[in-house]
Design a protein around this nucleic acid. Structure first.
Lengths: 114, 114
DNA sequence: TTAGTATATTCGCACATGCGAATATGAGCA
DNA sequence: TGCTCATATTCGCATGTGCGAATATACTAA
């Protein structure tokens, strides 16, 4: 069971391990139930891309979708995940400087200083 | 900044997105500062494998290593991560049944019923 | 029926990740 | 010096992930 719990946690973390999916969760957290179209416009995503990310979050049951007529409304399954994100923000802020350094060092992309 | 924060969260979640690394973090959370050898014996890991996972956690600054003579002692950088894991356990338990179903469905491996 | 809008799925490709095997580094000791 | 323990890094390979393009599905309206 210990092991199942760890696999569960790992799979949740993996579902959250992408900036776009974090943004989606934050949006749902802030606005409650929203249609996909709202997610698209708010985050500026490609339709297919968003749908793929939503599919990941759905598979992990982090969000649930409710079909209504033509559209699908998504919402967070459990607000506790909002708390998790908030803790992460707290963590980020209490190590602000190193965290920024870490991000800088981690991304090979960035502003390519030619 | 919003975006940096999301990338930061995502990279932390990614670091935690593996059962072995979860186990390591939990161990450090429970026992404080421990040498790598302790991690190996406690979790039954290959030495190289453990070192790779530790390297991921180090890169994300989730753990820090202190060299002392022959060995390296690791510890959690911030106990707030323990809180995050605890929240996840709470989340897991409050959706116990579906969570187990999800795990079952997610793993192609499992007990291979021939 | 046909057309249109909203969302999901599949495909192919580039890139990341996890693993064990082998090798490297580095400290302490003979 | 050379040897050994503790840990880290590199390599090759299999598998996973993220993306846009194309396609599919499902509902609505006419």
């Amino acid at each position: 069971m210990q092991d199942k719990l760890r696999r569960f946690k790992a799979s949740c973390f993996q579902a959250l391990a992408h900036p776009t999916r974090i943004a989606v969760v934050e949006l749902l957290c802030a606005e409650g139930e929203v249609p996909v179209s709202r997610i698209l416009e708010q985050l500026g995503l490609e339709q297919a891309n968003a749908s793929q990310h939503l599919s990941v979050l759905r598979a992990r049951q982090i969000v649930t979708g409710r079909k209504s007529g033509n559209q699908v409304f998504y919402s967070l399954r459990d607000p506790i995940l909002g708390k998790v994100l908030q803790l992460m923000r707290q963590y980020f802020e209490s190590h602000l400087h190193e965290s920024l350094e870490m991000l800088k060092g981690m991304e090979t992309d960035g502003e390519a200083p030619k």
